[in-house]
Amino acid sequence: MLRRFNTMKTTGDQQLVKRINRSVLLRLLRRQSGRSRAQLAQESGLTKSTVSLLVRELIDEGWVTEGDVPAAQGLGRPSTPLRIDGSRRGMIGVEVAVEALRVVGVSLIGEVLCAREEPLAGSEPEVVCRQAAGLVAQTQAQLAGQGVQLQGVGVGLPGAFDEASGMLRFAPNLGWRNVDFVPLITQALDQAGVPPVAVHVQNEADTAALSEYEFSEGDAQDSLIFVTCSAGVGAGIVLNDRLFTGVQGMAGEIGHSILQIDGLLCSCGRRGCAETFIGARALARLADPAQGGQTLGVVLQNLWTTFNPSALVVGGLSCERYPGIVQVARATLQGYATSAGVPAPPVRAARYGLLASAVGAAALVLYHDLRPMHAPAAGAVSRATGAPVTPSTPTA
């Protein structure tokens, strides 16, 4: 038995090493498209034979494709440029918003291939999961019709999601507390006939952050904060290339940080929360909703001095309705930065607009696939086996 155990452990270790090496190559190509096999070997530290073998697997599985133009000219056989294949594999992202469901099919390079939106048919968790699963099934069929293989499904929820237990702890605008969400959504997906793929769940502000971090180039180096302003207010935080979610998924619940002692009553039961100043309902009461940007600028200032991110992104329904609040918030933040004599991080509107959280839920699948050493969690379930997705579980 001891010998067999050691053999199984060795096999598992080899699978993990292979997944890590594959992820290294994929992340290099995502950072800069057009690298050759030789360049990948040089930059990854892997042997040329290992890179050639892994690249062949990645091409066969639809992760990578070869370019038509040689990467370099010179003596000997020209090298072939490689890039992430945006046509053969994709992810489905679901945003459970307070007012609607948004479901998107997204390619490996962040292209939105299809999108659906429906008003919520009801607020009960079981009803929401059945409705979401039906939309996922329709989206998967559309992707299959385009020749796109489903890699996984991600779900963004409007509240504190405890990744360790798979529980939705707190979603005041839906009236949800301590909902065992993962079994509900996986069962609904099974009943809807969705193929057995990994399912990942996270807070919708966290997924929105991933839509910018995983698919956008430029300012998001290894850290980014996405502030979403809709019925509720939240922040998705990426630090050192990892989502920062807190012990019970409560990190980033800035809508329930207190801005005024004994202020207006909030949906959470507290008084003076940020949501009572810059939530959608609060902004609708203002003669000029853009004035809410001053308070949003204060919130951005506090996030900046707390986390020192590379970039700040603002999105959500309120920003779509009142785009002026982003400009006011940026100016307010710049005023604080000027007073302190310190350059502020860039502030911009969400690139995917109202689809940010849904696209980011799709990116959540990629986020986990490209980080094999990320700790396993109840929020990442393989529907092929019914077990949590672990680092040694193949995903391709």
Rank of each mutant, 00 (worst) to 15 (best):
A132I: 02
A144D: 10
G263Q: 02
I59M: 10
L243P: 03
G105V: 07
L120Q: 05
G236Q: 09
F307A: 06
R348T: 10
G255F: 00
Q191L: 04
A208P: 03
I92Y: 07
R281N: 07
R19P: 04
N6F: 05
G360V: 13
A235P: 00
G315C: 03
E163C: 08
L135G: 00
A192D: 00
T393H: 13
H256K: 05
A329D: 11
I225M: 10
R116F: 11
I225S: 06
S107K: 13
L265Q: 04
Q146F: 06
I59W: 15
R4L: 12
G93Y: 08
S357D: 06
G315H: 01
A396W: 14
D68G: 15
R22E: 13
A384L: 10
R89V: 15
M1H: 04
R56P: 13
G175T: 11
Q140H: 12
W63K: 06
A344K: 05
A133N: 03
Y367R: 07
S33Q: 14
M1Q: 10
E126H: 09
L189S: 05
R102C: 06
R88T: 13
Q42R: 14
R321F: 00
A100W: 06
A209H: 05
Q187S: 09
Q138F: 12
P346S: 10
R270F: 00
R130A: 08
T393S: 15
L224V: 09
G249R: 07
V17M: 11
V17C: 11
Q140I: 05
G269W: 00
R321S: 05
R83P: 10
P372D: 13
P388Y: 01
S392C: 14
Q202P: 04
D222Q: 05
T338K: 07
Y213K: 14
L355N: 07
T332N: 04
I258A: 02
L143I: 05
K9M: 08
P125C: 01
G67F: 11
E124V: 10
T276G: 06
L25A: 11
T10W: 06
R169Y: 10
L239G: 14
V24C: 14
